[in-house]
Design a binder for these strands. Structure first.
Lengths: 112, 112
DNA sequence: GTTATAATTCCATTAATGTCGAAATATTTT
DNA sequence: AAAATATTTCGACATTAATGGAATTATAAC
């Protein structure tokens, strides 16, 4: 992933409402959640939510799938994964040693 | 790290110039680089660079240390680490299984 | 086909961000 | 103390982003 694209995706995660959406959709897993469910959890106007969802879709962080009159939102986990992978790749020193302590990160994920 | 702070930090990384600064400083390691060196690598006006550095400092992504008339910029690696740790933590399902394939990430960092 | 539900698009307003030249500050050198 | 170097602050302007009410589209149910 090139820098421009990574920056664009990070910018989308860099907004508290959108990061909250991200969080909710991570918890929801592959099946995702309807727009209405997200709206209920966040308690924000539909137009505002729609705006943020559209932005996230534009950079492929998420996807929507219609089922009847309900639209389901699903995180694109491979994209999230490649974004985090890019960040980690950037966090290696020139001599091949990762600067970030990977085991700390693993602990963080283990305690969930 | 709470959501608001994580979002603020991600927003700072979410700009191509600042992500480029981040990248350069990661490569530079703990000792950091002078503002002038960064400016030379990026080829942008000093005032613009200063503005971006100030923003990154504000959210503790980096630090400056004066040595004579030269200012050294150093990434705050612990902060970066906690930010990525937070993102990973958010990427766990409710039942304790990480959704992102951690081994892929490790491969990504291993190939640096 | 009219009503209800789910969500988006449109529009206007307000606020925040990005950019960069010029002036200012801090430090060192002569 | 004047000149040189490194970097920031100021100020102005242009662009982009955020918010939410009202109107619109899409689908389903009656």
């Amino acid at each position: 992933m090139e820098l421009e694209l990574a920056a664009a995706r990070l910018a989308e995660l860099g907004h508290s409402t959108r990061l909250a959406i991200f969080r909710i959709l991570v918890k929801a897993g592959r099946q995702g959640l309807s727009v209405g469910d997200i709206q209920q959890q966040l308690d924000i106007p539909g137009s505002t939510l729609s705006h943020h969802l559209a932005r996230m879709i534009k950079v492929d962080l998420l996807q929507q799938q219609r089922e009847g009159r309900t639209l389901y939102c699903q995180l694109q986990f491979e994209v999230v994964e490649s974004l985090l992978g890019y960040l980690y790749a950037e966090c290696c020193t020139a001599d091949g040693q990762p600067l970030l302590a990977m085991h700390n990160i693993e602990l963080a994920s283990a305690k969930c």
